[in-house]
Write a protein that binds this DNA or RNA. Structure first.
Lengths: 256, 256
DNA sequence: CCCCAATGTTCCATAACATGGAACCAGTGT
DNA sequence: ACACTGGTTCCATGTTATGGAACATTGGGG
């Protein structure tokens, strides 16, 4: 192996950095030491270097957190744009297979914000949603994000948009269980009569759901395509996208 | 110098990474080579290592962008929480000095989202704003973010909340010029009668404004304190915060 | 109050690894 | 076909990372 690839120190430092960033919680020095199996001294030096470069930050408790550089990036308006770029190929493929509108959304604050869209191939289809503010519990994207804890359902009554909108919190919670079981969510005529959507999660390396993708169109066409078929299609395609984000869903051995 | 601090490779790699992340735009290989003055070969190897670790990503044009790790972090709901933590001491100090409510906001999409708040020391003061959706052009935070290009003023009429709300776009643009000149923005009775706020920007290492902090309270008390005094206070305190983010505003030599 | 345990950092001899110059390869324009 | 820019691979060299052990530092516990 190792066709002579240089930069071992950098790789080790990067590994440290990844651990720190990927685990949401602050990491302690020793946890890093024995997770990577490096000498204490080496780990210490590498972390110092990363700290000097503001890539990690050591909080008052002595634990390591992502450094300011990550902060600066996250605070940029453009931060989410990169995700769209990464997701584009997948979305295009979904668009081609389903011929319906494909949307990408992330949780932000306590809202679902749509950050990208590939339009339907049909003349009649879901129109641009980007930026539009809708009750999340009536959407497939929202359900996915709620189901996987990427978003908290705010207390209070559930807004009702159509006779099919979910209104009972108990029932809704149950629906979320079902979403987790299947791996995808559907919203048929719940936001607007005649509008249907199916959505599934995008996972980061640690399994956290950080985004959702949906396919949406007229209920009739979506039904014709087959809701479960669409759900499975989404799940399959998004598995690939999650892999790009470093997520390996139970790592099948198979191909080297 | 160099009291023997080890990890030169890591520092170089980190420098590359910082350049890539801090400049909003994708960086080309050669621009990196001659900005850091490293050998082409060295740069190439370091970048390869960073790419293997998913810290940078090479887009189809061959330019380098922040890698998935940054994406994953930015997409985390918790991403902005770190900024709050970093800003907390500054905000506390501002709270203590002004005794009024202090707010921290970042641009997100095309909206101002408040991510942290230190409550007024008075019994009567600005109440919690976090998450509340208000017309940004009527707020000090909004004005700051608009003034420094962290946010684009959407086309269309300016919503009018009080007789003092800015409504004329021409006048508003002029006001923004003034904000840039002074370094801080004020909004007196513009959002709600009797509510006043003064805000100033937080800058990242490259000078980009990535957030804003405001002090707000009853117009009478804020006036008593002195608007310009408050403005200057904010600017002074936030200079320190920006420094934590790596911003050095014209680097005074002074102390080592 | 002292001693021990846990957690990190600094030292240092060793050699492994990163380094940069040059050769090399792939496009691209002329 | 040729020169040129932009990037990667090769390789001998010695600079620089490495890990074990010694050395701080902190924090309990008896």
């Amino acid at each position: 192996m190792s066709t002579q690839m240089g930069s071992q120190a950098v790789e080790r430092a990067s590994a440290l950095l990844s651990l720190i960033v990927e685990s949401g919680a602050p990491r302690t020095f020793s946890s890093l030491v024995d997770e990577l199996g490096l000498a204490k001294s080496t780990t210490s030096r590498l972390l110092q270097a990363l700290e000097r470069s503001r890539l990690v930050h050591r909080d008052r408790t002595g634990a390591f957190r992502p450094g300011v550089l990550f902060l600066v990036h996250a605070a940029r308006p453009s931060a989410l744009h990169d995700l769209s770029e990464l997701a584009r190929p997948t979305m295009e493929r979904l668009s081609e297979l389903s011929r319906e509108t494909v949307n990408l959304a992330v949780p932000r604050g306590n809202q679902v914000v749509q950050i990208d869209q590939v339009d339907s191939r049909y003349l009649i289809g879901a129109t641009s949603w980007v930026g539009v503010d809708v009750p999340a519990h009536c959407t497939a994207l929202g359900k996915v994000l709620y189901a996987y804890g990427a978003l908290q359902l705010p207390p209070g009554d559930l807004e009702c948009r159509t006779p099919h909108s979910p209104v009972d919190r108990r029932q809704f919670d149950h629906a979320l269980v079902e979403v987790r079981r299947r791996g995808w969510a559907a919203a048929l005529d719940e936001l607007e009569l005649g509008l249907a959507a199916v959505g599934a999660p995008v996972r980061a390396v640690d399994g956290t759901v950080i985004a959702a993708v949906s396919v949406s169109g007229p209920t009739s066409r979506v039904n014709d395509f087959g809701i479960p078929k669409l759900g499975d299609l989404l799940v399959a395609e998004l598995r690939g996208l999650s892999a790009l984000l470093g997520h390996h869903p139970a790592r099948k051995e198979g191909v080297a």
